[in-house]
Design a protein around this nucleic acid. Structure first.
Lengths: 220, 220
DNA sequence: TACATTTATTTTGCATGCAATATGCAATGG
DNA sequence: CCATTGCATATTGCATGCAAAATAAATGTA
């Protein structure tokens, strides 16, 4: 029998609001009025408030005592730091993936890679992004580490919620693709150190492309 | 004026229960009865349930629909993976710390190191652990990355909740201390790659010391 | 006795209600 | 005209209540 997973209201609410935040329907800084959301979703405040607590724990919203919740708005420094952590997680993913990925998975990633290149040729930025993210995701999955997977996913959501439109110039785009080619080579050779290095630099460059470098970040 | 921080009930409840779990008062697998806890803490179910949702999001408890919450019980594989992630986070911390740590902070860590060695000489395992953890914590802080700090802290809590009593033999103990000496050298030399390597190996050895290696973990 | 079925009790999930705090607005004074 | 005070409204935080599900207990049957 198709065991129909009875799912709890507050869980579906978490997913619902989380998607709204990650997809940009709810922008950073936006106030979340409990009554308003309750009416929209047709639920009472109890499950909603439980959902808000979860989203706050995930770092997607901020809750101020007696003043309600709002979509997290991060400082440039925090964003900078999140990219730094993300680059570390990707590097770790890559290193582990080289040990554990199957030839089939490598082939799948190559297919995604070529699909991505096609998007570049068509100047289809939107789908390019999707394929790009999918490739990074596959590498993370290939690391075969659920804790790493969860942490990576969670951090990625927080970053995605910021809705960067990276000021892309063609040169950077082509460089990014070149780096992806290098990734595939490293994967094929199962050169973990090399893949880690590429992924790390790749992410840092993405960060630089997004953030104009006008902020002060920690240096020695 | 001393801005008196009004704190919410469910937040204090989160901290309360979290401490109980991390300190081992509530052991993995233990069932959490809502009514029972409410009576103990003298609160109603609403703030308690909000707290439980947060703890579940942190990975410290599991909530089964209509069946209540229990302290998370992890499989050996999950534990193995968590150590792997932790080693990656420590390696990243070390690398960044070498770029950003101040001489004062290095001096503080050295002081902790010597205090730790004294504990070893006195066979004071309990305080040895405290100093040991404190040193790793300081390195993580010196990385100057709040996202990394949060992730590390959260993961460490989940691991601490498992309450390992590592089957310690003297040889391993001395080896661990030797590795700590190497860490200090790398810090002094601000050799990030080297410190990362030591920390990573250090953690993996700790994992091996704790887990008897009798589980199957992913390999190529 | 062992096992299945029914009934009673407990426990969870959600809605509602009330008190405390915060917010918005008008009246008052400088 | 602007700032400040006091009041009305809205919003949050927590307690309580009720229905549905799960667990435990009791009964019946082979």
């Amino acid at each position: 029998m198709p065991k129909l997973e009875r799912q709890r209201l507050h869980d579906t609410v978490v997913e619902h609001i989380r998607n709204f935040i990650v997809e940009g329907v709810l922008a950073p800084g936006m106030k979340l009025n409990e009554r308003e959301i309750c009416e929209t979703l047709g639920i009472s405040r109890t499950p909603l408030r439980e959902a808000l607590k979860v989203l706050a724990a995930e770092g997607l919203i901020d809750i101020e005592p007696n003043r309600g919740a709002s979509v997290s708005k991060l400082s440039e420094t925090e964003i900078w730091e999140m990219f730094e952590l993300l680059s570390g997680l990707e590097a770790l993913s890559g290193e582990l993936a080289c040990e554990r990925i199957t030839p089939t998975e490598i082939a799948d990633i190559k297919a995604l890679h070529y699909a991505m290149i096609t998007c570049r040729e068509k100047n289809d930025l939107s789908n390019y992004y999707r394929y790009n993210q999918e490739i990074h995701d596959r590498i993370n999955e290939a690391a075969r580490n659920s804790a790493l997977r969860q942490t990576y996913t969670s951090l990625n959501r927080r970053i995605k919620a910021l809705r960067f439109r990276s000021n892309f110039d063609v040169a950077k785009w082509d460089k990014a693709i070149q780096e992806h080619e290098e990734m595939l080579k490293a994967l094929d050779a199962r050169d973990g150190k090399r893949l880690a290095e590429i992924l790390r630099d790749h992410l840092i460059e993405k960060r630089e492309a997004i953030m104009k470098g006008s902020i002060d970040h920690p240096v020695a």
